[in-house]
């Protein structure tokens, strides 16, 4: 029983860590977006306002996948262990 709960907790923590690998994608994407925005402003300094606001919205949209990963990780750490342990104890009680 203790071993099973230990495996559940450990796997939840591992899963949260693996989920956050998704943070790489938005990082690269937003970096590209900002780099291109800097280039655009360098080429046309008068269009700074429009480029900046468009870039911020693009960054927010690109960030969404990273935030999904964050939410999955937070659910795995704070919510999932309780549910899984509850399911396990319920199943064991049903068998016995």
């Amino acid at each position: 029983m203790e071993l099973a709960i230990g495996i559940i907790l450990g796997c939840c923590a591992l899963g949260a860590g693996i989920a956050m690998i998704a943070g790489i994608g938005p990082g690269i994407g937003e970096g590209n977006a900002v780099a291109k925005a800097c280039e655009a402003i360098g080429r046309q300094p008068e269009s700074k306002g429009a480029v900046t606001s468009t870039m911020i919205i693009g960054c927010a949209v690109a960030e969404t996948t990273g935030l999904y990963a964050l939410i999955v990780a937070i659910l795995l750490i704070f919510v999932a262990p309780n549910i899984f342990v509850g399911v396990l104890t319920g199943a064991l009680a049903a068998i016995i």
Binding site: A60, E63, T64, L67, Y68, L70, I71, I74
Partner: peptide
């Protein structure tokens, strides 16, 4: 769903 999670995730990550 992405509307809700984007706002929630951003503020929550700041709190965490």
């Amino acid at each position: 769903i992405s509307f809700a999670f984007r706002h929630y995730g951003n503020v929550l990550s700041g709190v965490v």
